[in-house]
């Protein structure tokens, strides 16, 4: 579904990603872990199509297409979804308005008929339950005045409505208390299926107690230095990033 080859990315002259390689197949759940400043969020934003980065080398293929040539909206319409680490507040645009416009743009893109107001409302009400979002949130401006936890739940709610093929969740767990974390995890688990791939980017292993990954990758200093299964996350939690970083330093020195 997704193949990243030797991706190198710069911002303001500084190299942030220094040759990323990653393969994700349908149905898989990958966790990318790493310390602050390792390039995790940059990777997520690059996949979503943010234009403040300079891609100096590498390729990204998504469902056989060159992802890097696609506009952000085209990526979304092709089934790519990113849950933002810091969801933006958009006063004057309601959640429902944005979701209906986004969902119908994707449907149009796929040659499907647009959903009318009735069917759309039925869908959002059902999905709102999944992440325990109160219906009153739906008519509020996007993220405006939401608490940190509400914003993150709103991201997963949007994912549930837009039903992506590939979801990239950027630190959806950070800032959540344990109750909110469980709700988010429940929502994500409910959305796992054999056709959908999910990449979870996280600083902490905590979320992975509730969402069990198929693969875990450790990103340090712009490179994936270690890959493994769920046990790698546990080991990392016990030993800390320093354990890997020293290894990474040794690897890059060789």
């Amino acid at each position: 579904m997704l193949e990243i080859k030797n991706l190198r990315v710069r911002i303001a002259g500084k190299e942030i990603l220094r040759g990323i390689n990653l393969k994700v197949k349908a149905g898989e759940l990958h966790a990318i872990m790493g310390p602050n400043g390792s390039g995790k969020s940059t990777l997520a934003l690059i996949l979503a199509g943010h234009d403040s980065y300079e891609i100096t080398a590498g390729e990204v293929h998504y469902q056989g297409k060159n992802l890097l040539e696609m506009a952000p909206e085209e990526r979304a319409c092709e089934g790519l979804f990113m849950a933002f680490q810091y969801p933006i507040e958009i006063p004057g645009v309601t959640n429902l308005y944005m979701l209906k416009a986004g969902l119908n743009a994707a449907r149009k893109h796929r040659g499907q008929e647009e959903l009318d107001a009735m069917d759309f409302l039925k869908l959002v009400k059902e999905r709102a339950k999944l992440v325990e979002i109160d219906e009153s949130f739906l008519n509020r401006s996007v993220n405006e005045g939401f608490s940190g936890g509400e914003k993150k739940r709103n991201e997963i709610f949007q994912m549930a409505v837009l039903e992506p093929k590939l979801a990239v969740l950027d630190e959806t767990d950070s800032g959540l208390d344990i109750d909110a974390l469980k709700i988010v995890a429940k929502g994500v688990n409910a959305l796992r299926n054999k056709d959908r791939a999910i990449i979870i980017i996280t600083h902490y292993q905590r979320l992975l107690n509730y969402i069990v990954p198929d693969y875990v990758h450790v990103l340090v200093d712009g490179r994936i230095v270690r890959s493994g299964d769920k046990d790698l996350a546990v080991e990392l939690e016990a030993k800390g990033y320093n354990w890997i970083e020293s290894g990474a330093a040794a690897a890059s020195g060789s």
């Binding site: 199509g49 952000p72 979804f81 958009i90």
Partner: peptide, 28 residues
């Protein structure tokens, strides 16, 4: 707001529509 534009585009809304939606919100 460029970040708000990106957010809407990342939800599948075209750049033109996203600009119009944010502009409408400003006047709304």
């Amino acid at each position: 707001d460029e970040e708000a534009l990106f957010y809407l585009r990342a939800r599948g809304i075209s750049q033109k529509a996203a600009r119009d939606i944010l502009t409408y919100a400003f006047a709304g």
